[in-house]
Protein backbone atom coordinates (compact mmCIF):
# COMPACT_ATOMS: atom_id res chain seq x y z
CA UNK A 1 0.00 0.00 0.00
CA UNK A 2 1.71 3.15 -1.14
CA UNK A 3 0.04 6.54 -0.81
CA UNK A 4 1.17 9.07 -3.42
CA UNK A 5 1.75 12.75 -2.83
CA UNK A 6 -1.26 13.53 -5.01
CA UNK A 7 -3.44 11.28 -2.87
CA UNK A 8 -2.29 13.05 0.29
CA UNK A 9 -3.12 16.40 -1.35
CA UNK A 10 -6.59 15.14 -2.36
CA UNK A 11 -7.34 13.71 1.11
CA UNK A 12 -6.06 16.88 2.77
CA UNK A 13 -8.43 18.87 0.60
CA UNK A 14 -11.35 16.63 1.64
CA UNK A 15 -10.31 17.04 5.29
CA UNK A 16 -10.01 20.86 4.91
CA UNK A 17 -6.42 20.67 6.12
CA UNK A 18 -3.43 22.64 4.86
CA UNK A 19 -0.45 20.37 4.26
CA UNK A 20 2.79 22.04 3.17
CA UNK A 21 4.78 20.67 0.24
CA UNK A 22 7.72 20.02 2.57
CA UNK A 23 5.55 17.87 4.84
CA UNK A 24 4.23 15.71 1.98
CA UNK A 25 7.01 13.07 1.69
CA UNK A 26 7.03 12.13 5.39
CA UNK A 27 3.24 12.23 5.62
CA UNK A 28 2.86 10.01 2.54
CA UNK A 29 5.41 7.55 3.95
CA UNK A 30 3.76 7.41 7.39
CA UNK A 31 0.24 7.12 5.95
CA UNK A 32 1.45 4.29 3.70
CA UNK A 33 2.89 2.43 6.70
CA UNK A 34 -0.29 2.91 8.75
CA UNK A 35 -2.58 1.84 5.91
CA UNK A 36 -0.37 -1.14 5.13
CA UNK A 37 -0.55 -2.20 8.79
CA UNK A 38 -4.32 -1.82 9.12
CA UNK A 39 -4.97 -3.56 5.78
CA UNK A 40 -4.05 -6.86 7.49
CA UNK A 41 -7.70 -7.16 8.53
CA UNK A 42 -8.50 -8.02 4.93
CA UNK A 43 -6.76 -11.37 5.52
CA UNK A 44 -9.69 -12.43 7.71
CA UNK A 45 -12.55 -13.93 5.72
CA UNK A 46 -15.30 -12.10 7.62
CA UNK A 47 -18.59 -13.00 6.03
CA UNK A 48 -20.82 -10.33 4.63
CA UNK A 49 -23.45 -11.47 7.10
CA UNK A 50 -21.53 -10.10 10.11
CA UNK A 51 -23.43 -7.14 11.47
CA UNK A 52 -21.39 -4.20 12.78
CA UNK A 53 -21.09 -4.09 16.56
CA UNK A 54 -21.92 -0.80 18.27
CA UNK A 55 -21.90 -0.69 22.08
CA UNK A 56 -24.44 1.29 24.05
CA UNK A 57 -28.22 1.39 24.30
CA UNK A 58 -30.12 -0.30 21.49
CA UNK A 59 -31.79 2.99 20.64
CA UNK A 60 -28.45 4.41 19.48
CA UNK A 61 -27.57 2.90 16.13
CA UNK A 62 -25.91 4.13 12.95
CA UNK A 63 -28.28 5.18 10.24
CA UNK A 64 -27.63 3.93 6.72
CA UNK A 65 -24.65 5.64 5.08
CA UNK A 66 -26.52 7.21 2.20
CA UNK A 67 -25.72 10.43 0.43
CA UNK A 68 -28.96 12.32 0.17
CA UNK A 69 -30.11 15.92 0.45
CA UNK A 70 -31.19 16.89 3.92
CA UNK A 71 -34.38 18.89 3.44
CA UNK A 72 -34.56 22.26 5.18
CA UNK A 73 -37.84 23.52 6.58
CA UNK A 74 -37.22 26.70 4.56
CA UNK A 75 -34.97 27.19 1.54
CA UNK A 76 -31.67 29.02 2.14
CA UNK A 77 -32.98 32.02 0.17
CA UNK A 78 -35.71 32.46 2.79
CA UNK A 79 -33.22 32.35 5.64
CA UNK A 80 -30.74 34.87 4.29
CA UNK A 81 -30.46 37.22 1.33
CA UNK A 82 -27.46 35.59 -0.32
CA UNK A 83 -26.41 31.93 -0.56
CA UNK A 84 -23.71 30.49 -2.84
CA UNK A 85 -21.84 27.17 -3.05
CA UNK A 86 -23.29 25.97 0.24
CA UNK A 87 -22.40 29.14 2.16
CA UNK A 88 -24.41 32.11 3.36
CA UNK A 89 -22.82 35.32 2.09
CA UNK A 90 -22.45 37.98 4.75
CA UNK A 91 -20.54 41.27 4.90
CA UNK A 92 -16.92 40.96 6.04
CA UNK A 93 -16.37 41.65 9.74
CA UNK A 94 -14.39 44.81 8.89
CA UNK A 95 -17.38 46.22 7.05
CA UNK A 96 -19.55 45.83 10.19
CA UNK A 97 -16.93 47.63 12.24
CA UNK A 98 -16.77 50.47 9.66
CA UNK A 99 -20.57 50.77 9.70
CA UNK A 100 -20.62 51.08 13.51
CA UNK A 101 -17.88 53.72 13.43
Amino acid sequence: MSVTHDEVRRIAQLAELDVSEEALPLLAEQMSRILEYVAQINAVPASEGVKPFVPGPDAVRFRADEVKPWPLAFGPAELAPAFRDGFFLVPKLGQFEDAEA
Binding site: E7, V8, I11, A15, L17, D18, V19, L27, I34
Partner: peptide, 21 residues
Protein backbone atom coordinates in the same frame (compact mmCIF):
# COMPACT_ATOMS: atom_id res chain seq x y z
CA UNK B 1 -7.58 24.96 6.10
CA UNK B 2 -5.03 27.31 7.60
CA UNK B 3 -6.51 27.08 11.09
CA UNK B 4 -6.67 23.28 10.98
CA UNK B 5 -3.27 22.94 9.30
CA UNK B 6 -1.55 25.11 11.90
CA UNK B 7 -3.76 24.37 14.90
CA UNK B 8 -3.54 20.56 14.85
CA UNK B 9 -0.30 18.82 15.78
CA UNK B 10 1.33 16.11 13.62
CA UNK B 11 -0.41 13.08 15.18
CA UNK B 12 -3.88 14.61 14.94
CA UNK B 13 -3.20 15.67 11.34
CA UNK B 14 -2.09 12.12 10.53
CA UNK B 15 -5.17 10.56 12.09
CA UNK B 16 -7.57 13.01 10.47
CA UNK B 17 -6.00 12.21 7.09
CA UNK B 18 -6.05 8.44 7.68
CA UNK B 19 -9.65 8.71 8.89
CA UNK B 20 -10.68 10.71 5.84
CA UNK B 21 -8.86 8.22 3.60
Amino acid sequence: RTTRGEGFGPEVRRRVLVGTY
